[in-house]
């Protein structure tokens, strides 16, 4: 695998471009610091759900577009594409991030986990099962992001990371409904399935002893 920092970057006159690319006049300017009008392509190695993929991507490609348009992992959804809705939440090196505000080239060599990597229809992740059981969705568009986020929320609580509603910064954190609501505030659900989502996350938290009963 290529090490970080080792990039094969080239400018091409004609490119097969992904969703991130817009029609741009193909006039290259040689001088450094001048506006680049020609798309720049970089070789990127992404490790997604345990599989290594070597891609050639326009540098503008977000991690979300790389996953959806180049790797056909369409579970992660594009809601706002501005980091405000959370529908594109994935795990990078185990931490939840919004993949729309991460460049694919920045994810070089990092371990990306999407909803497809958490579970399958035949072998669902406990969080997926809990969302089904508690009806934690209506249209389903935000659900992949909600589930990826929720899995990370319980991990953050286990690591003792406090939140805005944590009363004592230095005490162990409990996965109470108010903690779950605050920690899930970056995942919007226009259908308004929030109360069922909290029930689903709470059940997984209790099953894995992340809350005192």
């Amino acid at each position: 695998m290529q090490g970080p920092g080792n990039f094969d970057i080239s400018r091409r006159d004609v490119l097969k471009l992904g969703a991130a690319a817009t029609a741009a006049p193909l006039v290259a300017k040689a001088q450094q610091g001048q506006a680049v009008d020609t798309p720049v392509v970089a070789a990127v190695t992404l490790v997604v759900n345990g599989k290594t993929h070597s891609l050639k991507l326009d540098t503008r490609t977000s991690l979300l577009d790389a996953l959806r348009e180049h790797l056909q992992l369409t579970g992660s959804k594009k809601g706002c594409d501005q980091g405000q809705c959370g529908a594109c939440t994935v795990l990078v090196d185990g931490r939840r991030v919004v993949s729309c505000l991460t460049l694919a080239v920045m994810a070089q060599g990092r371990k990306v986990t999407t909803i497809e990597g958490l579970g399958t229809p035949a072998k669902m992740h406990p969080m997926q099962s809990a969302f089904v059981k508690h009806d934690g969705f209506q249209c389903g568009y935000c659900t992949s992001g909600q589930i990826c986020s929720a899995v990370a929320v319980l991990s953050e609580i286990e690591q003792g990371i406090p939140s805005h509603v944590t009363t004592n910064l230095e005490a162990a954190v409990q996965a109470t409904p108010i903690e779950i609501r605050e920690r899930m505030s970056g995942n919007l659900c226009r259908c308004g399935a929030y109360s069922n989502i909290v029930d689903a996350v709470s059940e997984v938290a209790q099953a894995t002893n992340k809350v005192r009963t």
């Binding site: 939840r96 991030v97 929320v153 939140s163 910064l169 970056g186």
Partner: peptide
Amino acid sequence: SRALLAGATGQLRNS
């Protein structure tokens, strides 16, 4: 700590 936790979301604070 309190100021940081009052800002943004878990996803954004991770990045």
